[in-house]
Computed example of a mutant assay.
Amino acid sequence: MQSGKDTYQRITDTIIQQLEAGTKPWIRPWRGNSRRSATPLRASGEAYRGINVVMLWLSGQLAGYDENTWMTYRQAQELGAQVRKGEQGTLVVKYGTFTPKEQEADDRAIPYLKGYTVFNVEQIDNLPDRFKSP
Rank of each mutant, 00 (worst) to 15 (best):
S3H: 07
S3T: 10
S3K: 11
S3Y: 06
R10W: 02
R10I: 00
R10Y: 01
I11M: 13
T12N: 14
T12K: 14
D13W: 02
D13F: 02
T14S: 15
T14Y: 07
T14K: 15
I15A: 06
I15P: 04
Q17D: 15
Q18S: 14
L19E: 09
E20P: 02
E20W: 01
E20Q: 15
A21H: 06
G22E: 06
T23S: 13
K24I: 04
K24M: 12
P25C: 06
P25M: 03
W26Q: 11
R28W: 12
P29Q: 11
P29S: 14
P29L: 04
P29K: 10
W30H: 13
R31C: 07
N33M: 08
S34V: 03
R35N: 12
R36F: 10
T39I: 12
T39F: 03
P40L: 04
P40S: 09
A43C: 09
S44N: 11
S44T: 12
G45L: 02
E46Q: 10
A47R: 12
Y48R: 07
Y48T: 02
Y48G: 08
R49W: 03
R49V: 01
I51V: 14
V53E: 15
V54L: 06
V54F: 02
V54W: 01
L56Q: 06
L56V: 02
L56S: 04
W57P: 13
L58T: 10
L58N: 11
S59Y: 03
S59D: 12
G60Y: 00
Q61G: 11
L62F: 04
A63P: 04
A63Y: 02
A63Q: 13
D66S: 13
T69A: 11
M71L: 14
T72C: 08
Y73V: 00
R74S: 09
Q75G: 02
Q75Y: 03
Q75H: 06
A76N: 05
Q77N: 11
E78K: 11
E78M: 06
L79M: 12
L79H: 08
G80R: 01
A81F: 05
Q82D: 05
V83P: 07
K85N: 12
E87K: 09
E87H: 00
E87T: 01
Q88F: 02
G89I: 01
T90K: 06
K94L: 08
T97K: 15
T97A: 10
T97C: 11
F98E: 15
T99A: 09
P100Q: 03
P100E: 09
E102F: 09
E104N: 13
A105G: 06
D106C: 05
D106G: 06
D107K: 09
D107H: 13
R108P: 08
I110Y: 06
Y112T: 01
K114G: 03
G115R: 03
Y116D: 07
Y116H: 14
T117I: 09
F119R: 00
V121F: 07
V121R: 07
E122T: 01
Q123N: 07
Q123P: 09
Q123M: 11
L127H: 10
L127A: 10
D129S: 12
D129L: 05
R130D: 10
R130A: 04
R130L: 05
K132L: 13
